[in-house]
Write a protein that binds this DNA or RNA. Structure first.
Lengths: 194, 194
DNA sequence: GTCTATACGAAGATAGAC
DNA sequence: GTCTATCTTCGTATAGAC
């Protein structure tokens, strides 16, 4: 990500920050109404009332813009859930939140798929860091949870963390393709691996 | 060269069948050398020595071509593994095969991600059917396996099947982003849910 | 049936004016 | 900070040669 994606070292200028947020919000709205393919820079610009070139004053590429939308909502999503005590309670809550925002799940899935192609370094960096962080966090949480309840598991908790994240992402994709999939219920099965 | 030197109404379009397969093979090779984004119809055509318009004589769209490459390799992959007795032996074998073909895993992941967007009906239909089939197959296999070994599980086997597929796909993505991920080893943890 | 030539419209990126 | 204009590349579509 380049410096044009974040406010400069002299601090954010109020108008610029506001405009930047407006772009992020409108981008998600355009995605909700016209799909991700329909969310071209021209379409987003039109929804705001500026030219597509103006958007690149705030985001270095369309990819960077979409990743930023996801990053912001992702942070909110994490914050909305971190007060819950157990790992699986958090997973269930996240799954239930996401089911109410299919456009966001679609954006997540699409960007994740694109991130493994060369040329999408912005998305790749985002997801690499996100997975790294999530693996560490889950492993730590599981360790604490087991210790607090006096239980013990012979499973590699880093692998369990990996597995939980993989299952979450994979189930979301299956759910997008077939709404009969019960993400939260299926994730509960993972409690048995401990 | 070939019998098409004498153009009789004879052949059942041998040349066409051959050409079609050549397109499928070269498409994967272009993906391997230049990435999926680099595999434009023009680039693929150039690798074969035909115009990009010729490709659309065999495939209705670029998306349909990519899905067809995946479908063919996917069938081979299933066939290479279905002689193995246990579900988790098959999973391990598949994972190990895939690790040797990162370009194929990348194609799979990219198309799966794209399939959830409206406008990619070809990919969506492929993955919807693939998941439906895989869920049924895995559930049946697990049921037979449990019965044959005299064991019993109180888990919903359709959900377990869903979970296995989700974990497989999700771990592959994490592996593409970080090669330290041990797909087969982590999947083995799922034996505990039964 | 097979393929070339050619054109169309949309997309992201970019340069430079204001 | 925002615009217009332009560049390049893409998938797609059509007409017609052989």
């Amino acid at each position: 990500m380049s410096s044009s994606d974040t406010p400069g070292p002299r601090g954010p200028y109020a108008k610029g920050v506001q405009r930047r947020q407006e772009i992020l919000d409108q981008t998600l709205e355009v995605i909700e109404s016209r799909g991700i393919d329909g969310a071209s820079l021209r379409a987003i610009g039109e929804a705001i009332g500026v030219s597509h070139a103006a958007l690149r004053h705030y985001f270095s590429s369309r990819e960077a813009l979409l990743v930023e939308v996801l990053r912001q909502r992702d942070q909110e999503s994490v914050r909305a859930v971190e007060h819950l005590p157990g790992v699986f309670d958090r997973l269930t809550a996240s799954a239930n939140d996401n089911v109410r925002e299919p456009a966001l799940v679609t954006l997540y899935t699409t960007l994740l798929g694109a991130s493994v192609e060369s040329g999408n370094e912005t998305a790749r960096d985002f997801f690499s860091a996100r997975f790294e962080q999530a693996r560490t966090d889950f492993a730590t949480l599981l360790r604490d949870e087991l210790a607090a309840s006096g239980r013990h598991s012979d499973a590699d908790l880093d692998q369990v963390a990996s597995l939980i994240i993989a299952a979450f992402d994979g189930l979301q994709v299956q759910w997008l393709l077939d709404r009969r999939i019960d993400i939260a219920g299926t994730l509960r099965l993972l409690e048995r691996v401990l």
